[in-house]
Write a protein that binds this DNA or RNA. Structure first.
Length: 110
DNA sequence: CCCGTGACTTCCG
DNA sequence: ACGGAAGCCACGG
């Protein structure tokens, strides 16, 4: 049977679990999946998530709170607008209050 | 099986 | 603080 990679599925699931006004990092998701070194693969999974509107990929940023994947969105600053719409303060493609908006997938289950 | 790619992360200068 | 390079894992061809 054709089962898609669990890694992608998990990443997609976690991405959907990100609450409104919160953001997380690829490494955090990867670490939650048990592969802290697979942060890049998480980003790749988000690339596949691009086809799923149920996945708020704009809430997923890198470890520094930098909107590295903003170029992958439809618009140039679409990701930034979405985050700002949720109360995020972005400057130079970087979230100023990143720590304030940060959300850990493991913390949700904790 | 080998190679290339990628929305990351960490280390070094 | 900033920039460049290396390492890492997973998918597709």
């Amino acid at each position: 049977m054709s089962e898609k990679s669990d890694f992608f599925i998990k990443v997609h699931e976690i991405a959907r679990l990100i609450p409104y006004g919160r953001v997380t990092s690829y490494g955090a998701i990867a670490r939650y999946l048990g592969s802290p070194q697979s942060a890049r693969t998480v980003g790749w999974a988000m690339n596949a998530a691009h086809s799923d509107e149920s996945i708020p990929a704009h809430r997923v940023v890198n470890r520094k709170g930098l909107l590295t994947g903003k170029f992958h969105f439809d618009g140039t600053n679409l990701m930034q607008q979405l985050l700002e719409s949720e109360g995020a303060v972005i400057k130079n493609n970087k979230i100023q209050n990143f720590e304030e908006m940060y959300w850990d997938p493991g913390k949700n289950l904790l």
